[in-house]
Amino acid sequence: MDVTATTVIGILIYLAAAPVVGGLLTGADRIVSARMQGRYGPPLLQPFYDVLKLWQKENIVVNRQQKVYILGFFVFVIITGCIMFGGGDLLLAVFALTLASVFLIVAAYSTFSPYAHIGAEREMIQMVSYEPMVILTVVGMYMATGSFSAADIARHDGMLFLHLPFIFLGFLFILTIKFRKSPFDISMSHHAHQEIVRGLTTEFSGRDLALIEIAHWYENVFLLGLIYLFFAPVPVVAVAVTLAAYFLEVFIDNNNARLKWQHALGSSWAVTLVLGVSNVVLLAFR
């Protein structure tokens, strides 16, 4: 990847703005959810207050290794975003995100809690559920534009959505898993507790948990950035669709119970096969 001025500017903007945008979106998510539930909801800046509070908490974990893994998760999520917003190779970005998720899983395994272990198992099953669709998304973009580079894809004239409508829908489907919302919040629910207490993050507290929360903001911005790429030529429409997709996820979360991992795996693969593969096949014969 050539390091040009735009690359550096893109990376810097991402580093600085993504947590702010991610946090504000999370805050808006909580207010909208609360209103849908007939409650009043917290202030918009609540996620920032939460992270600041977590940062000040004493670290009382039993095993110190998990800090290393969580730091790995945090660093690689940022690298993922930097690759994409610096205009780099999207396939590399997707695999960097996979590596970040693996770090999180290993962090959960390194604790001694049965809840975290089961959360980690479920997280691995989740990864198997959504990875094919994410990869197909990037492959579809390559087939439509001829390049894996995010910069080229963003500058491609002609809206990608017109070439990749099914892949867009499939990506929206697995976005529910990535955002950890019902019906697919099986390893670590965003809002709620569940039978494995807090799932993956049961044993994390203090600064580690704050890092995970901030990393999720970076990750959300990356995922929304992928949606933006579908509509890149018309920025206004792209931003509108991105926000609409985010709030669609909030809406789906509030209208569904949590399904079991068998359903998540089965339905994601069905969607991937039907929507993803058919779109790729159509592009191949164009």
Binding site: M36, Q37, R39, S182, A192, N256, A257, R258
Partner: peptide, 16 residues
């Protein structure tokens, strides 16, 4: 029960 199967908004409405 709604809370147990992950449907928080239904839980809130029942209690309302």
């Amino acid at each position: 029960m709604a809370d147990a199967f992950g449907f928080e908004s239904l839980f809130m409405h029942c209690w309302r």
